[in-house]
Nucleic acid binder design. Sequence first.
DNA 1: ATTAGCACTCGAGGAGTTAGAGTGCTAAAA
DNA 2: TTTTAGCACTCTAACTCCTCGAGTGCTAAT
Lengths: 350, 350
Amino acid sequence: MSLSDRKRRILKAIIDEYIENAEPVGSKVIAARSRLSVSPATIRNEMSELEELGYLEQPHISAGRVPSTAGYRLYVNELMQTPALTVREAEAINSALSTQMRELEKMLREFGSLVSRLTNYTTYTLTTRASSETVRKFDVFLIDEQTAIAVIVTSSGLLRNKRIKLPCRADEAAISRVARIANSCFTERTLDEISLSLIKRAASEAGNLSELVMSIAEFAGEVLDENREGDVYIDGISRILSHPEYRDPEKAQELLRYLTDKQELIRHTQEHFSGNREEGAIRFSIGTENSDEPLRDAGIVYGSYDLGKNLQGVIGIVGPRRMDYAKVAANLNYFITGFNKLLKDSFFNE
Amino acid sequence: MSLSDRKRRILKAIIDEYIENAEPVGSKVIAARSRLSVSPATIRNEMSELEELGYLEQPHISAGRVPSTAGYRLYVNELMQTPALTVREAEAINSALSTQMRELEKMLREFGSLVSRLTNYTTYTLTTRASSETVRKFDVFLIDEQTAIAVIVTSSGLLRNKRIKLPCRADEAAISRVARIANSCFTERTLDEISLSLIKRAASEAGNLSELVMSIAEFAGEVLDENREGDVYIDGISRILSHPEYRDPEKAQELLRYLTDKQELIRHTQEHFSGNREEGAIRFSIGTENSDEPLRDAGIVYGSYDLGKNLQGVIGIVGPRRMDYAKVAANLNYFITGFNKLLKDSFFNE
DNA sequence: ATTAGCACTCGAGGAGTTAGAGTGCTAAAA
DNA sequence: TTTTAGCACTCTAACTCCTCGAGTGCTAAT
């Protein structure tokens, strides 16, 4: 059964009001603020029905009403209108997108920080790479006679390097022979496919530089593994405490610990995205829709980006359950549009 | 004038007690707990004098006493006894020092995280490089015909790389010519010494790859600048909220914002170290000794490490003003000892 | 110099009270 | 049938009042 138009308008008014003031809203304010010219009594009747339908809740009998998780869900799905960005917001996002900042991860992070400032919520950015990732190319070269640098480029375009101490003196020729061995043995293989016996075989080819080959293989393992896990950055942590629902330090600490735990956050995000493959990049998860305790009073807005075949980026904006979903969505939308455009004429030529 | 032995013992007992319980301590508990066999009345007299001397404070007339900043200062300078580490602590630190973890920054960060867990305080680590840092070596090589990777090794041993899109197709020979140009023009120069005219001259030598030279110069600028600023990692942020003095969300937020502001933290740390060149690696800054508002009720313990001529690392442990200075100092001490030993037979051959 | 005794102070915390916001219900009005 | 006004009712937040107890400072005795 779908709601009457009036019920919808009343529900929307209640949620807007509650998002703004964080206090249970009563029939009178709604009668006054909303454009419906009906009396508080009528609103009361409607509210009572909305409560029976599960969209509203009453903290106690003579307080106003508060939206339930289902109420917010309806709100983000159908009711809310995403506001136009202010000039200031648009400019800020544009400058974050500016061509100066070439690297995807950095850009995402910068945007997270920006959104945190614009919305006063905490944000996190998460970039993950598929476990089917492989090393595309190795390079090794000398810095001095005792030290080499190994550089790895992965299939998703990640670039990492490491300084490796040489087991013995070596010249350019020897080093480039090692690089050839590494390239022929270890490229185009996922982490699971680089077996110990393979490493041993490669090492034995390298003669007195076999240790170097082992180090390189180990490094490749690190890199592939590191990004299997994902990279997380948080911004605006202190803003959590500015919302009245986190006035209780225990509750605030619980959420904070959750958010600063990289493992938790990765698990949560991946869980959320695995069960949820609707089209469109912006998603919401609201209060008790979330299985994790620390998030039961929180809301999260996610934006996700698929960057080439092995790389995915997610940005999450975390606030109290009554967070301003509309505003956050508007910001994300704007950014995604610009971001996608940027990707098209991208340096990320996969 | 120096304090009588009894006064010192009483002061120490009060501070120990207060560190443990976070509540003003009265004469009775001290009479009971301390080994001095004197009556509460005597203690009261002594306490009253200690207050006049500025070592104690009274929140209100009939509460117990609380140590003042000066009281803590005396405590860390003369009174406290650093406890022996528990087996668990020592083991944890040893494993953080284990040779697995080769990179200094990573090791420092790991140790910060560890100390945070062991002590229940928030920690941060800061690594800075002197502005006299230069690029020691450039390397450039092709990944595919449109893309090159530039690698920079700095005088302090930092290693950075960046993918650069080529202005036009190029072969190995052209690229290594660019690398030669970069090496001859930009190495052994500080950021200030790489002038625009120098860049232009280098670019003009490179013919149709002049844009690539410009990109490389820009990248060098980024790297030298990035580390002029310093790198900060925080750990255990949520633990701030577990201390009763930060039960007030406003206060907690103030401190949190301060700590998550990279600029602030760097400025603070450098300020602290510039005016304070005593020997010995562990330092304290207590409450109002600190000029920054958000730290007026906090205490910080610093450990610092000079890693070669251009690189310095600092670790800071932040807690409430009544933090357990003795325990933190013990942990830091142990770590520093191990760390220095490690540095001696170091891979960091400068 | 130390201690016991005592009056005094002050804040934390509980009980009681009130004010006000908001509700649900009923009966009248549209 | 729907809407509205009116009203009694409920519940909390905030305030006052009060007591209890911890801790003090002072004085006089040891």
